[in-house]
Design a binder for these strands. Structure first.
Lengths: 148, 148
DNA sequence: CTGAAAAGTTAAACGTGCTTAATTATTAAT
DNA sequence: ATTAATAATTAAGCACGTTTAACTTTTCAG
């Protein structure tokens, strides 16, 4: 017999698979059309959601060398997606930040990838819509309170 | 004033962003450790969820040339993740299928990426767990009935 | 039955991205 | 003050994936 937490875990994973299955193709197409590599996308997510950081942090998180990170970021800077400025508190380091253009690109990518959700939303009854909205809000809140 | 379907759409997108934010790093790490490129992951998802197909179908879906698809798939075959056999109904064509090893690799990748969901599940109250499980089941069912 | 079309593979050329090693500039330590 | 350590960049070399073009095999059309 499964506990209700195990049932939720199973269902969450099942939803994730269904979601990935529907989003993967558009995600790959977006990366391709934007000329972005996986480490670059990773970097843009990092900067979008966890704020400014240095080149070395990006190297650590993506698992590539500092040199490779420096070059990869240079390409993002040339594309106008990331801003690179001197860290005022340590002039050896650089501060990397998303530019408005970078944020717009990420937003556009999400829009393309998640377009099917409008149709999905409309396919539910009013009662279901309300219940699912409440449930997802619970999940979002709980996730934001999760460690790391 | 937002309709309840618009509210759900907004909330779904918000959840997707939170989900991606948490999964992106692990996803990139998995691809890196498995030595998989984005078109390769795309191909494995395609084969896992929509069954066998030919080399040209993969080329179309990933947006690369037939030649590149052929070579990319050759690498997947050499890694033992995909099986390539002659199509009995048209001997010019090849049938591509996931191998058990390929399915196991995808499963392992999902496991790594979604490990945090167990913790998330346990962080909710019993009532919340039940409500969210029901809501997600509704979403899964509705998505599977969606077109394309 | 013969020629054109289709599916896939192979080969050569090219570009890109990664790694290591060397270099510059700045900060910390003794 | 001098030395060592840190953050980032640059350069050279190498591996990988992609493209175009040529080629093989099989199917379809006239």
């Amino acid at each position: 017999m499964l506990t209700s937490s195990e049932q939720l875990d199973t269902t969450l994973r099942r939803w994730s698979e269904v979601f990935m299955q529907r989003s993967m193709r558009d995600f790959a197409a977006f990366m391709r059309s934007a000329g972005l590599s996986m480490p670059q996308v990773n970097t843009l997510y990092r900067l979008s959601y966890r704020g400014a950081c240095g080149v070395g942090d990006i190297a650590d998180e993506t698992g590539i060398s500092n040199a490779a990170a420096s070059q990869m970021i240079e390409r993002l800077v040339q594309q106008g997606l990331v801003e690179r400025s001197e860290d005022p508190t340590d002039r050896r380091a650089k501060q990397l930040r998303m530019t408005p253009a970078g944020l717009a690109l990420m937003h556009e990518g999400a829009e393309q990838r998640l377009r099917w959700m409008a149709e999905l939303s409309k396919s539910l009854s009013e009662e279901e819509q309300a219940a699912v909205t409440t449930a997802l809000s619970t999940l979002i809140r709980a996730t934001e309170h999760l460690s790391a």
